[in-house]
């Protein structure tokens, strides 16, 4: 099963999210991540949905979602043609100064920022491809991850943009 990322341009109305997620629910497909935000056009929002499923399954929901009246556009972003980002905020336990400097070094090599620090913990922020975040989080587990927040993926097609 492959991860697919679908980008939807939808009318900014109450209920659109329920309609969209209902389509996945009816087919028993689990949404792995979902982001909703305003976009460049007024009155419209962009949703980025990541799901795991087979190609044919995805094709069927994609068409059904396109059928929704308030969905203006559906684009299937295979991960290769798109720039995919996830934002991660995480509190990592640092038991002593040695741990602290190791965490800071690793954070730097991953391009993560330290956004807060107390005596026994640092808070890190990393915006990256989801797989790289996975690896960074795994590393940090050696020190102890106290809290982890991820926004879920958002993605944009490379080149001239989605609105071909």
């Amino acid at each position: 099963m492959q991860t697919h990322i679908i980008s939807l341009l939808v009318e900014d109305h109450p209920g659109v999210l329920t309609r969209m997620s209902g389509m996945f629910t009816q087919r028993g497909i689990n949404i792995t991540s979902l982001t909703v935000s305003p976009c460049e056009k007024e009155g419209l929002s962009r949703m980025t949905v990541a799901i795991k499923g087979s190609e044919s399954e995805l094709e069927k929901v994609r068409k059904q979602i396109s059928n929704l009246i308030e969905v203006v556009k559906v684009v299937d972003l295979s991960e290769r043609e798109a720039i995919v980002r996830d934002l991660c905020l995480m509190k990592v336990h640092v038991k002593d100064s040695e741990a602290r400097s190791e965490v800071m070094q690793l954070a730097e090599s991953y391009g993560a920022k330290i956004v807060d620090a107390v005596l026994d913990a640092v808070t890190l922020e990393l915006t990256e491809e989801p797989e790289r975040i996975d690896r960074f989080v795994d590393l940090m587990r050696h020190f102890g991850v106290k809290q982890l927040f991820r926004t879920g993926v958002t993605a944009i097609g490379i080149g001239g943009g989605l609105e071909r």
Partner: peptide
């Protein structure tokens, strides 16, 4: 509105 969402082509509140 929510009850009839999956059984209509579209609905409005």
């Amino acid at each position: 509105f929510t009850i009839t969402m999956p059984i209509t082509k579209h609905n409005f509140l």
